[in-house]
Amino acid sequence: MKLVSIIVPAYNCISSIERCIISLLGQSYEKIEIIIVDDGSTDGTGDKCLNMALGDKRIKFYSVEHRGVSEVRNEGLRHASGEYIMFADADDYVKNSFVMQMVAALEADPDCDMAVCNYERVVYGGLYPIRTFTDDGMISKEDYLIQTLKDPGHHYFGVLWNKIFKRSIISENAISLKKDITLGEDFVFSLNYLKFAAKVNIINDKLYFYCYQKNDTLSRIINKSLKDCENEMHNRNKIFDNYVETMKKAGLYDRMKKRIYHYWIVFLVRQRYSLNAEYRWKREEKHFWIRKMHENTNIKTALTIYKRGEVQLEYMAFAIVQTIKNIMKKTLKSIKRQ
């Protein structure tokens, strides 16, 4: 039985961290170490974590000045001694078979270097349906990368907490979370890891409970500023550079170029929808943002690959789905209030 290191970044999460850690301590797979790194919390999270660490030798606790989640996860990686690496977020919790099933999936084939599980999304205390992207089973890393093209920005592909990694691949190739990327840094970590992987095993069992953030998503979108959007596009340019690099190394870029650039069609469609239905901006700000997006080199390329009618169909489909999602979230929120 190989040691598994589970890295948990913690920042001002005093109301949820205990639930997360208790679910990890209750794993049926016994050989684990839980590495909690407190990111300079100011609400007592650090003291709570320290007390939990004093009560169970499987917990290792570290505290740093506030650095942000990427650097905190990198700090956790530096202290990890397990042969396998997993991650969990302090707001979430897991099934007691989470580690056992992930390890079994990773060890099912000597050429398997990463395993991925499905998850439940908890919204206002209720379960919110998510899309299933892949079938169960062992696939090549090339096939997995092709699967990401369905929606590379989706949590399923982008996050770290539904995956298990080999520490040897991480350390031998100096893979870390990028400090200069503040959105989608998890996905970039996975992409850089996949450059050195052979096979990926998919588990469709829902082993992780991702808990919807306390802040209302629609409120956050409505209050989004032009600067926020510019920062997102700047981050997406960096993510896309890594995506293209990984696809080229896997020999997939030329064959999948149109689908790869769909990443930018999705971004453009979502921004157009938000400009029409959500952002509370002045007219000149909206015009400026439209112009700014169309000056982006990657978006320009995407619009030479996709026809106007294809983009319009994408927009209509997205608008319908978004409307349904907003209704479902409002319904779950009203049920919680009752």
Rank of each mutant, 00 (worst) to 15 (best):
G26M: 09
I14L: 12
K2E: 13
L54Q: 13
V94L: 05
V94N: 00
I22G: 00
E71I: 00
G76L: 07
I6V: 14
S97G: 00
C13Y: 00
M1I: 11
V99F: 12
M86I: 04
M100Q: 15
S5L: 13
K57Y: 10
I6A: 03
I7C: 03
C20Q: 09
I22P: 00
I32Q: 11
Q27K: 02
R19A: 05
I6F: 04
Q27M: 08
D38P: 06
K48A: 12
C20S: 08
L25T: 04
A10D: 02
S97T: 14
H79R: 15
I7Q: 07
E18W: 05
F87D: 02
S41I: 04
F87K: 04
E75Q: 06
R19F: 01
Y29N: 02
G76W: 06
A88D: 03
S63D: 03
G55M: 10
D89A: 03
L50D: 08
A88W: 01
D47Q: 13
I36T: 06
S70W: 08
N12Q: 12
M52L: 15
D89N: 06
A80Y: 10
G82F: 14
I21P: 12
Y62Q: 09
S16M: 03
K31T: 05
G55N: 14
Y29V: 01
A53P: 07
D89G: 01
L54R: 15
I59G: 09
I32K: 08
I21E: 12
S16I: 03
L25I: 10
V64E: 14
Q27D: 02
S15P: 01
D92C: 02
N12H: 11
Y62H: 13
R78K: 13
V4M: 09
K48L: 15
Y29A: 00
A88Y: 00
G76A: 01
L3K: 15
H66E: 12
I21N: 10
Y62N: 08
I85R: 13
T45M: 07
I35Q: 05
D43N: 04
V69I: 15
S70Q: 14
E75H: 08
N51W: 04
I59W: 07
H66D: 05
E30Y: 08
D92V: 00
H79L: 11
I85Q: 11
E30F: 10
S41E: 10
D47E: 15
R67C: 07
G26F: 01
V64M: 14
S23L: 11
S63I: 08
F61L: 04
F98P: 04
D92P: 03
R58L: 12
V72L: 06
L50F: 14
C13R: 15
G68F: 11
T42Y: 12
L24P: 09
L24W: 10
R19G: 05
S16A: 06
Y84R: 01
I59S: 04
T42A: 07
M1A: 14
R73L: 04
D38G: 03
K95R: 13
I6R: 04
I7M: 03
M86Y: 04
N96M: 01
G26E: 13
D38E: 07
N74A: 04
L24R: 11
V72K: 02
F87P: 00
I36V: 13
S5W: 14
V94A: 07
N12G: 06
F98V: 07
D56Y: 05
I7P: 00
R58P: 09
